[in-house]
Design a protein around this nucleic acid. Structure first.
Length: 839
RNA sequence: GCGGGCGUGGCGAAACCGGUAGACGCAGGCGACUUAAAAUCGCCCUCCCAUGGAGUGCGGGUUCGAGUCCCGCCGCCCGCACCA
């Protein structure tokens, strides 16, 4: 136990003691009924992979500083923690290590929770939850059924990425160069019946809602907007000159109906129903379509891929002129899953169409001209996509592009061959996963009754424990009994759904459950209203699209069906940077971890290492630093302080030995200041000013999450305190400083607070008040410039008038020397700042 | 290709609204204390042809004054990607 008079702060003894004191006082328990203003601070909950990594430490430290600060400023704070506990790694562990996914996951949770506790986070552990427990996922099943009843869930056949070795569906991100990321097997496209959530029903509101998110990074809002991808245009039919295979017309989507007079072909996707029908009796076309399916996955392919087509020999009639026909191609650049899977080509005003037209010698007709003189200007290698007026376009001639679009759409609608529409890039959310370790989808399939929801009183549908992972595939599917049930509707033999929900569903409402967790339902609407939306949400940018979009959707869906009052779950969002570290390589190119190196050489082999780029900490590059070792060596406060220092929180932070040493030194400096308890008398006005400026500045910085700036200000205050002579002001300032650093280095603050004789926990103390009178200096430094170049500085009373300042500047010896007796042409005086003499 | 962001000492970075560029930290140097080391404390630390001059990726512009505003380049990073 560290004695108050120890010259050194000893975190090994103090950290645990204060963590226990906080627990015993239930210092961080959020009270729903509190009359104080509420603050909900949340960090993205972790996947229990086994151990905490430095990224977690940084993320949770930031949230913790804010949560502790909010508490000190009189808020009732909700700062919870839980576990995003379903997912593939647990099944992989089951296959490799022969442990049950639940055993593995729960052990990881216990280990990681212990690590988080050691960091001293001000969390309300009474609200801890794990998504893999029935008391969480059971409520999720109920919410799924609510959405099903509301028509927001449907089932349809759809293409999936099927890994034939692991016998499972893979997400797009898990397919690398056409192969399964785990098995390495060539991924097949398969049609499977999948459950979908109707996120596209919310496309408009999810997009428009972004405008109201003033405390979100612009970047994230843009990424979501692009992902949702609203596009306005015309869906229209080109009638086939001669109907074929029961098809009379091809439906095409375009954002440029104004350029219809420049059309020179129609192109359909290789998977377009018409292409599939034609391919049945056309081996060459079938081969071409097959080729199309195999290109386009990898990044560079698209850039270099040549525009290729197959002429079907069919032709369509131009809607503006029955005598005008266009050839129909199957083309490799047309995508089946966007728009209608068919386009019309206008080579003059679209680069892809131009490339295609040149290759197949199709006409190129300019229909938009930036000026009347350029009406017949030839198109060379570049399509013209700029503004202008329509030419060679019949009834559209002379209109602007915008007017032309409207006129073409109006005519299409009037004549019945097309309609103005909005098309989205966003797809409905396929949530079916052929996996064990996820939330069972609570439906039953009955031969007679079809899909029957599991009755509410039979929820939760609990995962069976007795499963094996020795064969690939979904253990639920081959479980001897679990899937066999009686139909709730007719009582006949029926089959449970064996797919589980995408784990993104679990993380789409956990923040609601944190706010309210009754036993009998997912949450209580009124209690949730006390807390939501989350005031500040903090996590990595990697979740900028999927998680944050799904959570926004889920919240809006719950609102639409009357379960919730909020539409947007996260009022404030902050995306923090990564924790990075130098990388090292041996001469043979293998990665070497920092511990294996001494003086630039690998200790074991004596080989020299090359220092590589600074990169995100990752196991594969062996540049990780284990938080536990840092805690053992330096304690929680030094680790926390380092996480907040130097780098702005949105940028990457490079971990370094020197950096943590520096943080450790600061913690000890504060301790040395605090243990100095010699009584002293008298005021120190300069120190009072420094202190109050620091109180105001640190508060401002914490609220803006500019922790690096708050840290810099606290370093300055510490220096000022070290230099100041003993005084009552100084004694007071040291106490106040402890309050200012308390959110960042809470253990030391508690230890010092108590050593200085204060009652109660500093974690529950109030933030110090600022005396506004002390925020202004009574003297200021004035810059004296000649022609805008600094020549001298002088000290003047605050608020001195322009004439006084000018006179002072003219009196400066340096100014007199520079002016050489000449009279300045002009004098600019900015009060309290500068005097500029223009010669 | 499209969209977004960034570029400041040896390094991480500050700089409110256009007003003393480089606060604060790291690394480094010199010194003090010490038998010595650690710890700690003090000073120095953009560059140069140095009573001065140059300097915030490069080239221009606006202004009394530009890291900050405008135009044109260069480089790096991130997201999306044949989206009709």
């Amino acid at each position: 136990m560290s004695h108050p008079m120890d010259r050194r702060f000893n975190p090994a003894a103090a950290d645990g003691r204060w963590q226990q004191a906080w627990d015993e006082a239930e210092a961080f328990r959020a009270d729903d009924a509190s009359p104080k203003p509420k603050a909900y601070v949340l960090e993205m909950f972790p996947y229990p992979s086994g151990r905490i990594h430095m990224g977690h430490v940084r993320n949770y430290t930031m949230g913790d500083v804010l949560a502790r600060y909010k508490r000190m400023t009189g808020h009732e704070v909700l700062h919870p923690m839980g576990w995003d506990a379903f997912g593939m790694p647990a099944e992989n562990a089951a296959m490799e290590k022969k442990v049950h996914p639940g055993t593995w996951t729960r052990a990881n949770i216990a280990a990681m929770k212990a690590q988080l506790k050691r960091l001293g986070f001000a969390l309300d552990w009474s609200r801890e939850l794990a998504t893999c427990e029935p008391d969480y996922y059971g409520h999720e099943q109920a919410l799924f059924l609510d959405m099903l009843e509301a028509g927001l869930v449907y089932r349809k056949e759809s293409d999936v990425n099927w890994d034939p070795v692991d016998m499972t569906v893979l997400a797009n991100e898990q397919v690398i160069d056409g192969r399964g990321w785990r098995s390495g097997a060539l991924v097949e496209r398969r049609k499977l019946s999948q459950w979908f959530l109707k996120i596209t029903d919310f496309a408009d509101e999810l997009l428009d809602g972004l405008d109201g998110l003033d405390h979100w990074p612009e970047k994230v809002k843009l990424m979501q907007a692009n992902w949702i991808g609203r596009s306005k245009g015309l869906k229209m039919h080109f009638a086939l000159a001669e109907p074929v295979a029961d098809t009379a017309s091809i439906e095409v989507y375009t954002t440029r109906p104004d350029t219809l007079y420049g059309a020179s072909f129609v192109a359909i996707a290789a998977d377009h129903p018409l292409a599939l029908a034609l391919a049945e009796n056309n081996a060459a076309l079938a081969a071409f379509a097959e080729e199309c399916r195999h290109t386009g996955t990898a990044t560079a392919d698209i850039e270099t891929a040549e525009k290729k087509g197959y002429d079907t020999g069919l032709s369509v009639v131009h809607p503006f002129d029955p005598a005008w026909t266009l050839p129909v191609f199957v083309a490799n650049f047309v995508l089946m899953d966007y728009g209608t899977g068919a386009v019309f080509g206008c080579p003059a005003h679209d680069q892809r169409d131009l490339d295609f037209a040149r290759k197949y010698a199709l006409p190129v007709t300019r229909v938009v001209a930036p000026s009347p003189e350029e009406a017949d200007a030839p198109i060379h290698d570049e399509a013209y996509t700029g503004p202008g007026k329509l030419v060679h376009s019949g009834f559209l001639d002379g209109m602007t592009v915008e007017d032309g679009k409207a006129a073409a759409i109006a005519r299409a609608e009037a004549e019945g061959w097309g309609q103005g529409t909005t098309v989205w890039r966003l797809r409905d959310w396929g949530v079916s996963r052929q996996r064990y370790w996820g939330t069972p989808i609570p439906v039953i399939h009955c031969e007679a009754c079809g899909v029957v929801p599991v009755p509410r009183d039979q929820l939760p549908v609990v995962l069976p424990e007795d499963v094996s992972f020795d064969i690939p595939g979904n253990p639920l599917d081959r479980h001897p009994t679990w899937r066999h049930v009686a139909c709730p509707s007719c009582g006949g033999e029926a089959r449970r759904e064996t797919d589980t929900l995408d784990t993104f569903a679990d993380s789409s409402w956990y923040f609601v459950r944190f706010a309210s967790q009754p036993k009998d339902k997912a949450f209580d609407r009124d209690t949730v209203a006390q807390w939501l939306p989350v005031g500040q949400y903090i996590g990595g940018v990697e979740h900028a699209i999927l998680h944050l979009l799904y959570a926004r959707f889920w919240t809006r869906a719950l609102k639409r069906i009357g379960k919730l009052d909020v539409a947007e779950p996260f009022a404030g969002l902050f995306t923090q940077g990564m924790v990075t570290h130098e990388t090292y390589k041996a001469p043979d190119g293998r990665w070497i971890s920092p511990e294996e190196i001494k003086d630039g050489v690998i200790v074991e082999t004596g080989e020299p290492v090359t220092v590589g780029r600074v990169e995100k900490m990752s196991k594969s590059k062996k540049n990780t630093v284990d938080p536990t070792e840092i805690l053992d060596q330096y304690g929680a406060d030094a680790a926390r302080w380092f996480m907040l220092s130097d780098s702005p929180p949105e940028r990457d932070l490079e971990w370094s030995e020197a950096g943590i040493e520096g943080a450790w030194r600061f913690v000890q400096r504060v301790w040395r200041l605090a243990i100095d308890r010699e009584p002293a008398e008298g005021a120190d006005k300069d120190l009072d000013r420094k202190l109050h400026k620091t109180i105001a500045g640190v508060a401002e910085d914490i609220e803006a999450l500019s922790f690096n700036k708050a840290v810099a200000k606290l370093y300055e205050l510490a220096s000022a305190l070290e230099k100041a002579a003993p005084s009552a002001s100084r004694t007071q300032a040291i106490d106040t400083m402890l309050l200012l650093v308390a959110p960042m280095i809470p253990h030391l603050s508690e230890e010092a607070w108590s050593a200085r004789g204060h009652e109660g926990l500093i974690a529950q103390a109030g933030w110090p008040a600022v005396d506004p009178a002390l925020l202004v200096d009574d003297e200021v430094t004035i810059a004296v410039q000649i022609n805008g170049k600094l020549r001298d500085t002088l000290t003047a009373p605050k608020g001195a008038d322009k004439a006084t300042l000018e006179a002072m500047a003219r009196g400066s010896e340096k100014v007199i020397a520079f002016l050489e007796g000449k009279e300045p042409k002009k004098v600019i005086v900015v009060p309290d700042r500068l005097v500029n003499l223009v010669a």
